[in-house]
Design a protein around this nucleic acid. Structure first.
Lengths: 230, 230
DNA sequence: TTTGCGAAAATGTGATCACAAAATGAGATT
DNA sequence: AATCTCATTTTGTGATCACATTTTCGCAAA
């Protein structure tokens, strides 16, 4: 199967074909629908999306330039493989970027926004209880994104999402082999710190959340997962 | 003048038209050849590069997805404007990303590589003495890049270059209004710290270098520059 | 069974064209 | 002089086609 099935995705009216292709592929990669090493072809995707090569190629170019896909020497496009070293690198980058983003968001968050963030955290646990891993994952990303984007002049969010995209494939594998998502309860800690406007504590909570979440897999567990992906 | 003249750029044999367009535009933006607000058209660029819309459009899409260009509501593409807040955000991001990258590069740097970095630093001062601002700028970027990319599994370099690209336009304006580039001598400090394998000191030196370099312009100076760009 | 060869299919690339929407500019009207 | 109107031009979008390269696969030879 060269071209995996794409998750559902409503196409907003007025959206260009190119933007639609980009958004749909991006979403698929972000939630781990593609396995590392999967090759993606322009024509295959154009057919799947019922369009033509031109807009699909543009979408693929964008995805490669943000690290979500990789172009090989022979110009073919694949979902990047993940080595343990690369994985560790991505996690440490997440910590650096997101604790920075969280710290700089604190001053901009309103009480109302903090309540909304707290509500998102509740919905994460709902989805986990319901067993919908993909939904829990998306809600978890919304939790983080809502915090960071409170800063209106922020530049960092696209960079963070680039890292998320690069973690997507390993995340998909992990979800297949973990019967149940456990989410470390650092979110409450972060929310409390937000209420206290304690920038340092917020940054620490976010860093711990990342480290103990997906980052908490030790090298052995990752190596095992990556072998499964090969 | 809608489409500014592009700096010279040799086209390596075998490079695709699209890659050439991307590399050349990227380089132009990185060294500040484009002013904020400049609008870029597909056909205009295709003509300037003696090619056709298709590869140019792909290049533009990539540049927008890494923040080097911006698509407006009417789908026109422009060089982004920079506000003082955005500028400050970019500088703080540079500090966070590059001190992180520098710290994680230390363990991978060989003596030979450190000597090479030292040689690059010498070439920066040569270019400054010669008065070639663009060359000094490129050499300065090479100094930083050579340090960070010593880490073979590093993911962070594309993100750092994204930030550099977003700073490019303001940098071009600054160069027009500064008779002489002054480079704070934190490079020697960084090199010494590299030799001592002192990760913390390396990170601090890089952070100080950024802060006291372009980041050292105070809000007033930036506001004045940004007004000139309008 | 394995290896080598060649035709057929698949794939990336880039130019071109038609279409729709937006911007431009000239001329008329107030 | 300022504003409105409408034709013209410019611009982005996406489908299609031709070309070159790579990959795939069947078949014959070792």
């Amino acid at each position: 199967m060269k071209t995996p099935t794409l998750p559902l995705f409503d196409r907003p009216e007025g959206m260009t074909t190119h933007d639609y292709a980009f958004a749909r592929l991006r979403q698929a990669i972000m939630v781990g629908s593609f396995r590392p090493g999967t090759s993606v072809t322009i024509r295959g995707l154009a057919e799947a999306l019922e369009s033509s090569p031109t807009p699909v190629r543009e979408a693929l170019r964008q995805l490669t330039s943000i690290g979500a896909l990789q172009v090989l020497e022979n110009r073919r496009i694949v979902v990047p493989h993940i080595t343990p070293a690369r994985f560790e690198e991505l996690i440490s980058l997440r910590i650096a970027l997101e604790s920075h983003a969280a710290r700089r968001a604190v001053a901009h968050l309103t009480e109302r926004q903090i309540e909304r963030i707290s509500a998102i955290d509740d919905s994460i646990e709902d989805e986990i209880r319901r067993g919908d891993q993909a939904a829990a994952l998306i809600a978890n990303q919304a939790f983080h994104r809502t915090i960071y984007t409170a800063n209106p002049d922020q530049i960092v969010m696209p960079l963070i999402e680039s890292v998320w995209l690069q973690l997507g494939p390993i995340l998909g594998i992990a979800m297949e082999h973990v019967s149940e998502l456990y989410v470390v309860d650092r979110h409450r800690e972060a929310i409390d710190a937000l209420r206290r406007r304690d920038e340092g504590a917020v940054a620490d909570a976010i860093a711990a959340d990342i480290r103990e979440g997906i980052g908490g897999f030790d090298q052995q567990a990752i190596a095992r997962l990556l072998k499964l992906a090969a």
